[in-house]
Amino acid sequence: MSSRVFHILARKGHTVITVREDDPIPAVADILARHNIGGAPVVGPDGGMVGLVSEKMIVNALSQRGPDISALRARDIMRTDVPTATPDDSIYDIACRMTYSRSRHMPVLEDGKLAGLVSIGDIVKLRAENAEQEAAELQDYVTGSDHAAVQSQESTPPAYCGKKDA
């Protein structure tokens, strides 16, 4: 069974830190730092998502504008063509979309409303946990079987090992 976005959201929760499109960039940077996150959806006056702002966008704006960055708002630097996911999307599919769109954060929409946010870190964590579980299951399968070529270390060797018949 392939993992789905809802598997990640079930673990991390559906709470999404957002910023408003008219928030000054220093305030956006403060929100990202305070919550230890790399990006946040930007919401408009009606509460609907209008874009996404990330640390990378702030660094790019700082590089281009220097101290004038204080005059910028989230709407001035946000990405508006943000790829989104649904809770039923496969992790593989959204990982591919994130890679091709060079996005590290993907808002999850359900019925047009923000239902969560998945980061590339969330995907890596889930994939690592799944790989560990699969390895443990394979180990149990191999060592738990009666296959003569593989014996667990706790098992007693056959009587003929190390002994010569008379």
Rank of each mutant, 00 (worst) to 15 (best):
K125F: 04
A61C: 05
A40Q: 09
V43E: 09
D81W: 02
R20F: 12
T18C: 15
L126R: 10
S103V: 13
E129K: 04
I31A: 11
D81S: 13
I77L: 05
D88H: 12
L126N: 07
A115C: 05
V16G: 00
R4S: 10
R4E: 12
Q64E: 15
A27N: 07
A27Q: 10
A95E: 13
A136P: 00
M57C: 01
E129H: 03
D140I: 00
V53I: 15
E154P: 01
H14S: 14
M78D: 07
D93E: 15
V124G: 01
N60V: 11
S103F: 15
D146C: 00
L32Q: 04
A95L: 11
A166G: 11
H147V: 02
V59S: 03
T15H: 14
D68G: 08
V53N: 03
A128P: 00
A10S: 13
I58S: 09
G47Y: 08
S54K: 03
I123L: 10
Y160K: 05
Y160T: 01
Q133I: 13
S155A: 14
Y141Q: 07
V43Q: 07
G121A: 11
M106E: 10
M98K: 06
M1K: 09
Q151E: 11
A33S: 14
A27I: 00
I17G: 01
G51T: 09
M57T: 00
A149Y: 12
S90K: 13
E110V: 04
H7V: 07
Y100R: 12
D30G: 06
D89N: 15
S152R: 14
E21S: 12
G144E: 07
P83I: 15
G48M: 09
D165V: 10
E55W: 00
E154M: 11
A29P: 02
H35L: 05
I58N: 04
L126K: 09
L138M: 14
D68K: 14
D93R: 12
K125E: 05
P158R: 10
I25L: 11
R102P: 01
P157M: 08
R127N: 09
A131S: 08
D111Q: 14
L117S: 08
N60S: 09
S63C: 09
P24A: 14
V118S: 09
R65T: 07
V82N: 01
I31W: 00
G51I: 09
V19C: 07
G144L: 08
A95M: 12
M49V: 14
A10I: 00
V59W: 02
N36P: 00
V28N: 05
S155T: 12
K12P: 02
K163H: 11
D68Y: 04
M1A: 12
L138E: 10
V108C: 07
L138N: 07
V5H: 06
V59G: 00
H105G: 09
M49P: 02
P26N: 10
D81Y: 05
A166M: 02
I8H: 06
G121W: 01
I69H: 06
R4L: 13
R20V: 06
A131D: 06
R11L: 11
D122E: 03
D89G: 04
L32P: 10
I120V: 15
V16M: 08
I123Y: 05
A29F: 03
R65P: 01
G162C: 06
E132R: 14
E110M: 10
